[in-house]
């Protein structure tokens, strides 16, 4: 099992005490499987993604990736997890503005010690970025920036890809094109994919769907 989440809970502090966001969530994901997380705003989708991606810590429960319990990892341990095991694609792209496209694509793979220039070039080619390699993020359109973010994640060959509304900032046609490319490339790597989305159409293209409602799986 690539990902095993058991009884996961998380609350954020609020003016009138802790506000629970996740309440005992559990799920599993196999390598090569794709999973859509759906739910209304505030249902806890992104929080679940952040916890699995080692970006935040759970209050209770357990997360195991590739059989390794990652719930109790300290800051350096979670940083290593983000570098080597998972890759996160954000809605806001979150490219590094000071690096050009080529360096952005290579960045995470180099951090993980898995940089392969030929693979990065293939990804850039597959995502239609070859002509943009020497440009900086501010010089790209939204669709181009998201393609760079996808290439950056896949170039690192993570076992688990987490995507948080990856096409939320794109128009419909661009979103569809980016989605096609992303799914094809993820399938090629054999990684597991967990994607947060509001769109029923996009969710329908993934292998499985889960619905979150008020912090619980419906």
């Amino acid at each position: 099992m690539l990902l095993r989440v058991e009884n996961l809970s998380k609350a954020y502090p609020g003016p009138e005490g802790p506000v629970p966001v996740l309440r005992g969530v559990g799920l599993q994901l196999r390598a090569g499987e794709t999973l859509a997380l759906r739910g209304e705003s505030g249902s806890g989708k992104s929080t679940l993604l952040h916890l699995v991606g080692g970006l935040d810590r759970a209050d209770a429960g357990r997360i195991a990736i590739d059989g390794q319990d990652v719930t109790g990892l300290d800051d350096p341990g979670r940083a290593a997890l983000r570098r080597g095991t998972v890759g996160v694609i954000f809605q806001q792209f979150n490219l590094i503005p000071s690096l050009n496209v080529r360096a952005n694509i290579a960045f995470q793979a180099r951090l993980a010690g898995r940089h392969d220039a030929a693979r990065a070039a293939r990804l850039a080619d597959a995502l239609g970025l070859t002509a943009q390699l020497d440009k900086y993020p501010e010089q790209l359109s939204g669709g181009q920036q998201q393609r760079v973010a996808i290439a950056r994640t896949l170039a690192a060959r993570p076992a688990l890809v987490l995507a948080d509304e990856p096409t939320g900032n794109l128009d419909e046609a661009t979103a569809a094109a980016v989605m096609d490319q992303m799914l094809a490339l993820v399938a090629e790597t054999g990684a597991g994919l967990m994607m947060v989305t509001h769109s029923p159409d996009l969710a329908g293209r993934l292998g499985r769907q889960l619905h979150l409602r008020q912090g619980r799986l419906a």
Binding site: L55, P76, A79, R82, R83, P97, F107, Q108, L111, R152
Partner: peptide
């Protein structure tokens, strides 16, 4: 906002 992506990609806050 500039450093958060680098953190998300695996650099610790301490580093």
């Amino acid at each position: 906002p500039q450093l958060a992506p680098a953190w998300a990609l695996g650099l610790t806050r301490a580093s």
